[in-house]
Simulated assay, not measured.
Amino acid sequence: MHVYLYQVGSGGRPLLDELHSERMRPVEIGPQFFNGDLRLLNRAGHDSHAFLLSAGPDLIDQITRLRRAGCGHPILVLRDRADPENATRALDAGADDDIVTPVRALELKARINAVLRRAHGHAADSVSVGEVKAFFDGRDPEVSGHRVKLSRREHMIFQQLVLNVRRVVSKAAIYDAVYGMSDEQPFDKVIDVYICKIRKKLGQAAVSGHQYIETVHGRGYKLDAAETEMRPVAAAG
């Protein structure tokens, strides 16, 4: 999971270490970030990147700029003490959550995932597609009742398909969601390789043998059930 991290003052190393411990990938930003063209953040695949903003004198302006640029990213405010009045102002400006630190990265991850799944129309913490039960909190999926182990990178890619279940996700959107904030930019074919690996794992675990990830040529990929699983059973008689 990628996060943009804005911190006021020094002493932010413990939070960075905490985020890394939960396999979150923080990118530190400064005040100049909010003076750029924030509309670029609206590219497909970037909406799953979250903002962790340290409370400071420019907080409301920062939130307002993001929302006015059309950014739908999760925005979580971090403050060092309870401040109901200013927390209310931040939430009214467009923040999704306001949290008093210190806070564990595991909780931050859960709060970000909750915002993301609701933004994509999912109320529960999991979604079932045929024999596949996929979770939004980073747990490995279950296929035909058995856990299927995914690598960290496979998780990141699979999560994009799960958030957009039964909808086509372009390869470019998946690439940006997984690698868009990385210093290392591999060839886009790497997505095809990972998709093949995930598809194989799902198919091997499924009793039906269905691989569940469909390639929609010229458009991208889609997580969906087999047609026979979606077809209604005819009434007897």
Rank of each mutant, 00 (worst) to 15 (best):
K171W: 01
V193R: 14
D37K: 00
D188S: 13
I99W: 06
A172E: 10
A134F: 12
A124L: 14
R139M: 10
P57A: 12
F135E: 05
E227F: 14
S144W: 02
L108R: 07
R152N: 11
I174A: 06
G45M: 08
A205D: 03
G9Q: 12
L202R: 01
E107K: 14
A123G: 02
A105N: 05
V193E: 12
R167H: 11
D37V: 01
L5I: 01
H217Q: 12
A50Y: 04
A110K: 14
Q159R: 12
S10H: 11
K201E: 02
D96C: 05
A90F: 09
G70D: 05
E142Q: 12
R117Y: 10
D47P: 02
D188L: 08
A206C: 03
Y179D: 03
R79V: 06
L116D: 07
V77P: 06
A234H: 06
A50T: 07
D17K: 10
V169D: 01
D47F: 02
A44E: 15
G12D: 08
R118Q: 14
R117C: 09
E131I: 09
V169M: 07
D97Y: 06
A55Q: 06
L53D: 07
Q204F: 07
V165Y: 00
A119V: 04
I157N: 05
L163I: 07
D80P: 15
L41P: 05
L163T: 02
V27P: 00
A50D: 06
A90W: 07
T88D: 11
D37H: 01
I191T: 04
D188N: 05
K133Y: 02
H46W: 13
D125S: 15
H155W: 14
I191L: 00
G237I: 04
V148A: 08
S128W: 00
D47Q: 13
G11N: 13
N35K: 11
E229T: 04
N86Y: 10
Q204W: 05
I75T: 05
G145V: 05
L161E: 00
D58G: 00
D183S: 15
S10F: 11
G180W: 11
A82Q: 13
N164F: 05
P186D: 08
A95Y: 09
S126V: 03
R89P: 14
G220V: 05
K171G: 08
F158I: 06
V132H: 01
E22P: 00
G72C: 11
P84F: 09
R65N: 02
S151H: 05
K189V: 06
A134D: 10
I60E: 10
A69S: 14
P141A: 10
L108N: 10
Q7G: 01
H120K: 14
E85Y: 12
A114K: 09
G9I: 02
D188C: 04
D17F: 08
K197M: 06
P186Q: 05
D96S: 08
D137M: 09
Q160T: 00
G12N: 08
K201P: 01
V100F: 03
N113M: 10
V143K: 03
E85R: 15
R167Y: 01
Q32F: 12
I157H: 06
L76I: 12
